[in-house]
């Protein structure tokens, strides 16, 4: 774990636009990983990312893990009859040949039990666990609390 954090620090120094990094593992491509700064460590943080499954069979995101939070969970904001609720997402299906966005107002990671407050410019590793593709780790960049997404040239959104 220490090595991961250390690597993350090195990466921060090397690249100011981490949210635009792309990680590809097999048929799965992960990009645009970002979060919002938090006020203190008591409030839950959020995790957004874009996932593309270039394979010919479906997969599913079934869990997330990070040293930044003790209780990371997958959630979905659902607005029904204008009431917003945030049920847990058991798994997020990533169909063959499709992209899925964890983005404001929809699927997102909810990071409870933050180790420390997230500040703009921080970054932390997030391991996404897929049913078939296994574990893939990406660095998450912390943007402003007002951010609506990273500015990436090849923005998948």
């Amino acid at each position: 774990m220490k090595i991961t954090v250390f690597t993350a620090l090195i990466l921060t120094l090397a690249s100011p636009t981490l949210a635009c990094e792309t990680v590809t593992s097999g048929e799965m491509t992960i990009e645009n990983a970002w979060s919002r700064a938090t006020i203190g460590a008591n409030r839950p943080a959020v995790f957004y990312v874009a996932i593309t499954n270039a394979g010919s069979s479906g997969d599913a995101l079934i869990g997330i893990a990070t040293p930044a939070a003790s209780m990371p969970m997958l959630h979905q904001t659902v607005v029904t009859e204008d009431i917003a609720s945030m049920p847990h997402a058991m798994s997020i299906p990533i169909a063959a040949g499709q992209s899925v966005q964890l983005a404001p107002g929809g699927y997102h990671g909810m990071l409870m039990g933050l180790t420390e407050a997230l500040k703009v410019g921080d970054n932390f590793p997030m391991t996404l666990t897929f049913q078939n593709a296994g574990d893939i780790t990406i660095n998450v960049e912390v943007l402003s609390i007002r951010a609506e997404g990273p500015d990436c040239e090849s923005d998948g959104q």
Binding site: R36, R43, P44, A45, V46, H75, T77, A84, M86, P104, G105, H108, M110, L111, I145, R146, A147, E148
Partner: peptide, 11 residues
């Protein structure tokens, strides 16, 4: 305390 809807609405 809401991580998704409220910051998004406020933004």
């Amino acid at each position: 305390w809401c991580p998704d809807v409220c910051p998004t609405t406020l933004s």
